[in-house]
Nucleic acid binder design. Structure first.
Ligand SMILES: [Zn+2]
Length: 630
DNA sequence: GCAAGGTC
């Protein structure tokens, strides 16, 4: 384009066109930037590379207009320094690809942003040095012992993620639930029988029985009735993490799949840039125009619903808390979908409904809180009944359903409600849930490792390495994954912890502020790794052996129940822990319930709260006894 | 071949 009398040529990169690269030696501390297309099997970036190289020959000024974050700064810097001239270069900064923001950024462009560039370069080196060297160390060690070449890896993001799955799973699968008792009452509300469980917890069955006996002659007295009108606020538009969570919940998509399909929609021009953490839509996005366009398409009926809710004709998008330096939240462009896959259409509709919901109205809920005294005891019990009086956004975003109490509640202060039935319920404690791909991604988000663009993929890498496996929707570690974590935790403790990322980010901030030089920061990592590998030159066999065992490449003493290495009493650490927990908890069960061991074992074996390793221990050592005894 | 980060 010609603007203000000057010819401007705008050409796009496609992510990093250059990557760090070195030969195959070990340890390796020197790396150079090399064109991505020369390294990777995928040559897609070559055409972008060639074009930018050609155009750069004729340019008098170079402007980096990549994403306004440290990666965007590195992407543009590398292109300018390898093809152009960093002395004739500028930086544009904007957080949404809208006319307003682009014009503003154009009119206020700055010199090249070295604080960001240097921090970005340091980030690349730190990850490369740790990842390449430790991965090579693992593979060399295994090769020494087994002569096998098997791809193994470790890294700042993938290793803490693997460690998290394993530590959570260790607790989950060796879990033995504890018993407790609660009292269930059935009363008549108006003309409807209504059952609920008293909140009071009884550790021992006998205590619960005593109280239940008293309640048979008891009643509920209504102490207070409160009617509260609550609002259920409409949700903000999607960032990628929320989209991945919802597509997982609703369609069963993995986070990686959602990211891929979202990219497809983006390239089709149907949605805005998907790899964003923002839940906000800035005023520079023309929401009115987008909704008008959507109204003409297949989702026009949703726009009609929306318009019936909005007063005054102005849409007010609910803004979320999460932010992104380079992009707004995900929104539909208003373009009509052409021929796209079934999955793409599902995801598109989800994004459309969420966007329209964020522009619609909050739902109104009528909630009745009934405070009762349970006679003849002094328990105060709260009963809550809610019904949706105005669905608002719930009628557009129909993936979220709110239960409504059906029926009329005719009670007021002083009303006495007879108890028609009393029973005792055995309840058991619940363990923390197993990870799914989605909940693992949410964990990564929470602790702050990885980015929108990488989290889904890094989870898939752990599966490709056969460190993790999936059954149904749940994730389980493999023996190889367990050995990898054991080896890394013992020898490179930094690498299993999220702290490595926190500390790296602090270091990057110092580089940005000029408190330390990027080369100094990189040097510190090299020194640390160098010390490690000098120290470990004579333990490669030991480490190789630990990795060869789960791969079945060497003989070793196995657990009596599984393939893991025996740890104590012919059991692996996991089965040993499960047996220990089980023995302790059986006693607790006996005291609290008065059940025989046989009954307890059967209940535990049947319960979904009991861990897998616990069940295997039960099967091996207890179950036969039980069937003989009976 | 190996990381994590871009994007195809
Ligand atoms: Zn075992």
């Amino acid at each position: 384009m010609t603007y203000r009398g000057k010819l401007h040529v705008i050409a796009s990169a496609a992510g990093h066109l250059f990557e760090l690269y070195a030969n195959g030696s070990f340890p390796v501390f020197e790396a150079e930037w090399k064109p991505s297309w020369q390294i990777s099997a995928n040559k897609f970036s070559k055409k972008y590379y060639m074009l930018l190289q050609q155009l750069s020959k004729k340019a008098s000024l170079f402007v980096n207009a990549c994403d306004y974050d440290i990666e965007g700064s590195v992407i543009g810097y590398n292109i300018i320094r390898f093809f152009g001239d960093i002395k004739r270069a500028k930086r544009m900064k904007f957080s949404a690809l809208t006319k307003d923001e682009i014009l503003k950024a154009y009119n206020s462009m700055s010199e090249l942003d070295y604080p960001y560039i240097n921090a970005g370069i340091a980030r690349h080196y730190v990850d490369w040095l740790w990842g390449i060297n430790v991965s090579r160390f693992l593979m060399r060690s295994l090769h020494k012992v087994s002569k096998k070449r098997i791809t193994l890896s470790a890294g700042r993001v993938q290793t803490p993620t693997l460690y998290e799955v394993i530590s959570k799973e260790f607790k989950r699968e060796t879990y033995v639930p504890e018993p407790y008792f609660r009292i269930k009452l059935t009363v008549t509300l108006g003309s409807i029988p209504y059952s609920f469980t008293l909140s009071k917890i009884f550790e021992n069955k006998k205590d619960a029985e005593k109280v239940a006996e008293l309640l048979k002659k008891g009643y509920l007295e209504v102490v207070k009735v409160e009617r509260i009108n609550k609002t259920l606020e409409r949700p903000p538009p999607f960032n990628l993490g929320d989209l991945q969570a919802e597509a997982g919940r609703i369609f069963g998509f993995s986070p990686y799949k959602t990211e891929r399909v979202a990219e497809e929609l983006y390239l089709e021009g149907l949605i805005s840039y998907p790899r964003t953490n923002s839940q906000k839509i800035p005023p520079s996005v023309n929401v009115e125009e987008i909704i008008k366009e959507l109204g003409k398409g297949p989702y026009g009926f949703l726009v009609s619903k929306l318009n019936s809710m909005v007063v005054g004709g102005r849409y007010l998008i609910k803004q979320g808390k999460e932010e992104d330096p380079a992009h707004p939240a995900i929104y539909p462009t208003g373009e009509k979908p052409g021929k796209i896959t079934k999955d793409a259409l599902k995801l598109y509709e989800l994004i459309v409904r969420r966007f329209l919901a964020s522009a619609s109205g909050d739902a109104n809920i009528n909630s009745i809180k009934v405070v009762t005294r349970v006679h003849p005891l002094e328990y105060v019990e709260e009963l809550n009944f809610q019904s949706v009086v105005n669905p608002g956004w719930l009628s557009i975003y129909t993936y979220t359903q709110v239960k409504s109490f059906q029926g009329y509640i005719d009670i007021k202060e002083g009303t006495k409600i007879p108890i028609s039935k009393v029973s005792i319920a055995l309840e058991i404690s619940k363990p923390e849930a197993r990870y799914t791909k989605v909940s693992l991604l949410k964990w990564m988000e929470k602790v702050g490792i990885g980015t929108e663009a990488t989290r889904g993929n890094i989870i898939e890498i752990l599966f490709k390495r056969k460190y993790l496996s999936q059954k149904g929707k749940y994730i389980y570690p493999t023996p190889l994954g367990i050995s990898i974590v054991n080896v890394l935790k013992e020898n490179f403790p930094e690498l299993v912890s999220v702290k490595l990322t926190t500390e790296m980010e602090n270091m990057l901030k110092d580089v940005q502020r000029g408190k330390i030089d990027k080369d100094q920061a990189i040097e510190l990592v090299k020194r640390k790794l160098s010390e490690y590998f000098t120290k470990y030159s004579n333990i490669e066999e030991k480490i190789g052996l630990a990795l060869a065992k789960p791969l079945g490449l060497v003989k070793y003493e196995k657990c009596e129940i599984c393939e893991l290495e025996a740890f104590k009493d012919k059991l692996c650490e996991w089965h040993f822990e499960a047996l220990k927990n089980l023995k302790e908890k059986i006693n607790l069960w006996k005291i609290r319930t008065g059940y025989s061991e046989g009954v307890i074992i059967k209940k535990l074996y049947k319960s979904s709260a009991t861990g897998i390793y616990t069940k295997e221990v039960i099967k091996k050592y207890f179950l036969d006894d039980v069937s003989h005894a009976n």
